[in-house]
């Protein structure tokens, strides 16, 4: 992925062997490059291209002339997205969601990983598998399961709480975002825990021994040795989580069947999807692509900002 870092001396002519080697290298790269182009670069390019167009009827009149044409509209689609109250309301929702969900999940994952890695827990593999299991369930299925568990008519949780005198409505407009946070956290905590756990287990045991000899207790080893050594993994997990939550889609899309109060533009991702499907106006691939691009740029900026802050903090 990185550029050639070979610092070969400047030679005018390369030997046939080197050229052959290069060719072999490219040959090995070929399957990746082709697929990368096909499923990654081309769709992105097409999305950017179509974001400058809108589909409108030809001929005017009541029904148009029976054909939609792609009309070049310049930056009109982007103007629509940037000035759309719905878009920013959706963005606000996912940001709020990110601010609540990501720290909650990362801290939970870290705590679980530390516990499993500590000497307190025996039979590590059982716990590891148990915490990871929710991740094996596809997000849409997880959402469907939770919709049933949230449903006031049939949920054992709601009924159980009601029996204890606590009446909750998981679909109330000020609770529903929390209900989604719960689904995502339930699904992804185990996954992030695994990332942390592998980072923890990669720490050389000499470090622990040295710390012990210096008189550190278990708590101090955890905080002073283990924690600093999983920073890299934490940064990666945070970045992926931030970008993942910005794209929040499965949970609200599935929960919408149970709660029509979740609008079609509840999150930017849903707004893009439903614009493309024609449930929102202006509709079509043009405005939908513009939404996706603006969203990607914002996600990129946020991830960059986070990485920048992280670096500043770690340097100081």
């Amino acid at each position: 992925m990185t550029a050639h870092t070979t610092t070969a001396p400047a030679r005018r002519r390369r030997s046939p062997a080197a050229r052959r080697e290069e060719r072999t290298g490219w040959l090995f790269m070929l399957p990746f490059v082709l697929l990368f182009l096909l499923v990654f670069i081309v769709p992105i390019g097409y999305a950017i291209y179509s974001s400058f167009f809108q589909q409108v009827a030809t001929g005017g009149g009541a029904y148009g002339g029976g054909e939609l044409v792609n009309r070049f509209v310049g930056l009109e689609n982007f103007r629509y997205v940037v000035t759309s109250g719905e878009f920013w309301a959706g963005m606000g929702r996912v940001l709020l969601y990110t601010v609540i969900q990501v720290p909650l999940m990362i801290v939970a994952a870290l705590v679980l990983a530390m516990l499993i890695d500590s000497f307190v827990v025996k039979h590590v593999s059982g716990f590891r598998l148990g915490y990871f299991l929710p991740y094996a369930i596809p997000g849409v299925i997880a959402s469907i399961i939770w919709v049933y568990l949230y449903n006031g008519q049939i949920s054992p949780i709601v009924k159980g709480l009601a029996a204890l005198g606590v009446n909750v409505d998981f679909f109330a407009s000020n609770v529903v975002l929390g209900s989604m946070v719960n689904i995502t956290t339930w699904t992804f905590t185990g996954y992030n825990m695994l990332i942390f756990l592998s980072a923890l287990q990669a720490i050389p045991h000499e470090l622990y021994e040295a710390a012990r000899i210096d008189g550190a207790n278990g708590w101090q080893v955890a905080m002073k040795v283990k924690l600093p050594n999983v920073r890299g993994a934490a940064l990666l997990a945070m970045l992926l989580s931030i970008v993942g939550t910005i794209q929040l889609f499965n949970e609200p899309q599935v929960m919408q069947t149970a709660d029509p109060g979740i609008s079609y533009s509840y999150t930017p991702m849903m707004m893009a999807f439903n614009t493309s499907r024609g449930f929102l106006t202006p509709k079509g691939d043009g405005p939908a692509s513009a939404i996706a691009i603006v969203m990607a740029v914002i996600a990129g900026l946020l991830a960059m900002a986070y990485a920048f802050v992280e670096r500043k903090v770690s340097e100081s």
């Binding site: 992925m1 499923v39 990654f40 769709p43 992105i44 097409y46 999305a47 179509s50 890299g232 940064l235 990666l236 970045l239 992926l240 970008v243 993942g244 910005i246 794209q247 991702m269 893009a272 999807f273 493309s276 691939d285 939908a288 692509s289 939404i291 996706a292 691009i293 969203m295 990607a296 740029v297 996600a299 990129g300 991830a303 960059m304 990485a307 992280e310």
Partner: peptide, 20 residues
């Protein structure tokens, strides 16, 4: 690693919603 994550994440967001 962070850059890779970022670039691929931005890409994911883009690719997720491209053509119909």
């Amino acid at each position: 690693m962070a850059t890779v994550a970022m670039v691929s994440a931005v890409g994911m967001a883009l690719a997720g919603c491209g053509s119909g």
